[in-house]
Computed example of a mutant assay.
Amino acid sequence: MIDILAITSPIFMIIAIGYFAVYRNIVPQSITRGMGAFVMNFALPCLLIRALAQRDLTEVIEPVYLLAYGGGSLLVFAFGYLYALKVAGKGQANATLQGLGMSMCNSGFVGYPVASQVFGPTAEIALALCVIIENLVMMPLVLVLGDSSQNNGQTRMQVLGKAFLNLGRNPIIIGIMIGLVISLSGITLPMPIFKVVDMLASASGPVALFVIGGGLVGLKLKGLRADMARIVSAKLVLHPIAVFVLVYLLPGFDPTLRIACVAFACSPMLSIYPIFGQRYGHEGLCAASLMMATSLSFITISTALWLLDTTSVFGPLP
C-alpha cells in the first residue's frame, strides 16, 4: 500500500497546491480557468497526437477495451438515469445529470496524471480510448437527453446532429483525428514540430491537476444529500466495479491496458460537470458532487490500485 500511496499522493498534493494557491489568491481563479483552456485546447490534443502518431494503428485501437469501458459507462449511466427518473421521481434533466455524474470520468485531468505514473506511455493509449468513448458515445447521449428535456422545439435527431457538429470542432477530437491520420499515413513529424508537440503534451498532467485544485475553491457542499451521496458513491464505486467486471469477463487483451481501463474508471466525474448542471438548472447539486467526489477519489483510487496489485487479478502493476 505504501508503494501505491507513493504514486497517488503526489497527484493529490498538486491538486491541494492548486486549491491553496487560489484560496490564498496567489493565483486568481480566473487565471486557472485560462490554464484549463490551455490544457483542453493545446496540451491534451498534443498528448493524443503524440500517443497516436508514434504507434501503428493496430497498437492503438483495442476493441475489447472500448467495449469494456464503454459498456460499463453506459450501464452505470442507464442505472443512474432510470433510478432518478423512475424511483426518485426526478425530472429528465436532473436524471440525465445524475447518470452523467455517475458514469463519465475526468480522464484527462485526473485519470491520465494518475495512470501516467503507474503505466508510463501505455497511459496515453488508454486516455485516447477513454476519450473516444466519452466524446463520441457518452457526450452526445447526455446532450440529446438533456437538451430534449428543455422543450426548445428541436427533435432528438436535430439535437444529436448539432451535438456531433460541435464535437467536430472539439480540439480533443481534432487531436485524435490528426494522430490517426499520421499513424495511418506513416508520416514522421519533423523533429522541431514533434518537439513542440512533445513539450505541450508533457505539460498536460501537472497543469491539469493544478487547475482541478483551483476549481474546487468556492464550491459549496449544498444540495440534496441523498442525490449527492448516490452520485458520488456510484461514480467512485459502482462505475469502477462495472468496468472491472466487463474487463474480467471479456476476452483477454494486454494486461497493462486491462488495469489502466479500471484505473481510469476510478476517476471522479468530469471537471465541467457543474457547467452541465448550470445548463440544466442544477448547478448546486453538480458542484457539490464534484467537490466531494474529487476529495474522496484519493482514497478510492489508491484502494483500487492496491487491490489490483495485491490480488494480481490481471497481473502485477508495471
Rank of each mutant, 00 (worst) to 15 (best):
D3F: 11
L5H: 00
A6F: 01
P10F: 03
F12H: 01
M13R: 00
I14A: 00
A16I: 07
I17C: 11
F20W: 15
A21L: 14
V22N: 08
Y23F: 14
V27Q: 02
Q29N: 12
A37R: 07
F38D: 02
V39E: 06
M40F: 15
A51P: 13
D56K: 14
T58R: 15
A68H: 05
Y69A: 10
S73C: 13
S73I: 00
L74T: 06
G89C: 08
G91C: 05
Q92N: 13
N94G: 02
A95N: 06
M102C: 09
C105W: 12
V114Y: 03
A126F: 02
I132G: 02
I133L: 09
E134V: 05
M139Q: 12
V144M: 14
D147V: 13
S148N: 11
N151E: 15
G153L: 11
M157K: 14
P171A: 09
I172E: 06
I174N: 04
G175T: 01
L180A: 13
G186D: 10
L200C: 13
S204A: 15
G205P: 08
G205N: 12
G205K: 09
P206W: 05
V207Q: 01
G213N: 02
G214D: 09
G215E: 10
G218M: 06
L219V: 02
K220H: 13
K222F: 07
D227L: 01
H239A: 00
H239V: 00
P240I: 04
I241P: 04
A242V: 02
L246E: 08
L246K: 10
V247C: 08
V247T: 10
L250A: 06
V262D: 07
V262A: 10
A265H: 09
S267I: 01
P268A: 08
P268Y: 10
P268S: 10
F276Y: 15
Q278D: 15
G281I: 07
L285V: 10
L285S: 06
S289N: 10
M291T: 04
T294C: 10
S295K: 00
S297Q: 10
T303C: 14
L317I: 14
